[in-house]
Design a binder for these strands. Structure first.
Lengths: 229, 229
DNA sequence: TGACTTTCTGTACGACGTACATATTGTGGA
DNA sequence: TCCACAATATGTACGTCGTACAGAAAGTCA
């Protein structure tokens, strides 16, 4: 995938791996996860579709690399500050993850689709477990609690964006007349408009998200200053 | 989709909607969510591919109906018993959901992909909120807490099945990255056993699942007998 | 300059969802 | 009894997808 920098022979590359990931992310944001295609990426970059396969072995690898880059962009500094209370550190991480994922709703399914075992994914879990360990949890409990937190954050956002897609999809799929005409809807294009209702739902789910997170942290921490056990 | 029973004229149907869903579920179980195809369903039933469109307007409708049927098969009796403690009732529901979803791993993505607004999905959430309300929570808190529980159950199983199917992906770079990252990170963080049998990981995650559920219930219930607030 | 290496492109195949026209098959009214 | 009709199945076709394969471009180095 990545060539060694010492080796420089042959025809120069027309694009970069990052440009491919940028194009993929662009398609992800505009059309949803289903509309990310190798051909679309290539068209956006002005190269032949199969030229992508010199950078990544297949489409799944592109999506995995996109997830990895996404997780690598998460700012660790905020919740790596050991001066802050551990609850605030965890909440900072959760909120940052949520903010980034809501900005790219299609990425949630990619996160939940793969096994999340890339370097950045593991480092993120490691950091999260470190926060809990700093607060006094055993290594085992910290690992378990970090898993619970990851599950909650990803699950909550997955359900949230699934509900947001509802407004877009029902309009097209409620037209259930047999042999419905194709000119009314094109299944490949989503409008994804930001209406006021979506905004309201967004803020509501933010509150709901924090409510759940707070109560989960309560459950993970029997005493106010320390997490589980 | 469903014809009225009074109206019976025309050529009789060759199959039933349930048979189509059965075929779809079969494909889902054998090949994963990605390998469910209209053509495959039709081939399995011995009909032409486009004959499916007599029963459902499109493929997405088939999958939605499959999810709805799946949720409808969840046994409500176990956790509708008001004699049992509310924690046991919730745990019974969560474990039943988990058991069913682990039996059909591909269904998890379908559940998280859609907005979960079908009748059975709503009834399930309502039943769950009812349990919490029975235990003394306000209607608002019961709704919020049920949301948290749904998020946890679905998210946990999604991550679990995502970790299980690491075999279908290209192994070349996956193994290298995993080894590289696992060496740098302490094994106590998250012991994802690759060499051991799937049953071991399965039981481990079952235990992990219950651990998280217990602690979340602790957080939702400040006092041992009542959930949030 | 010419061999070599890497990358890009042209072309092609099979699978997919599904629209359209047409054939098939049962039923109720004549 | 027969025929028009309605509901369903099929034949065919189009556009899109991922991606495999062979060959053409475009640099570097001897």
């Amino acid at each position: 995938m990545t060539q060694s920098p010492n080796r420089r022979m042959g025809r120069p590359r027309a694009v970069t791996e990052q440009a491919i990931l940028d194009a993929a992310l662009s398609q992800l944001d505009t059309g949803g996860a289903a509309s990310v295609s190798v051909r679309g990426i290539a068209a956006q970059l002005g190269i032949a579709p199969n030229a992508v396969y010199t950078y990544f072995p297949n489409k799944a690898a592109v999506l995995r690399a996109l997830v990895e880059r996404f997780l690598g962009e998460v700012n660790h500094d905020r919740f790596a500050d050991r001066q802050m209370p551990w609850r605030e550190r965890v909440e900072a991480l959760a909120l940052e993850l949520r903010t980034r994922l809501v900005a790219h709703p299609g990425a949630v399914h990619l996160l939940l689709g793969g096994p999340m075992d890339g370097p950045n994914a593991l480092m993120l879990r490691e950091s999260l477990a470190g926060v809990l360990a700093d607060a006094g949890a055993t290594a085992d409990d910290a690992a378990r609690a970090s898993y619970v937190l990851v599950v909650y954050v990803l699950g909550a956002i997955a359900l949230e964006v699934a509900g947001l897609d509802h407004a877009d999809l029902t309009e097209s799929e409620r037209i259930t007349t047999r042999r419905a005409t194709l000119d009314t809807i094109s299944t490949t294009t989503y409008p994804r408009t930001t209406s006021t209702a979506a905004t309201v739902a967004k803020y509501f789910t933010t509150e709901q998200f924090l409510w759940g997170l707070t109560h989960i942290l309560n459950g993970l921490a029997p005493t106010p200053e320390a997490p589980a056990r």
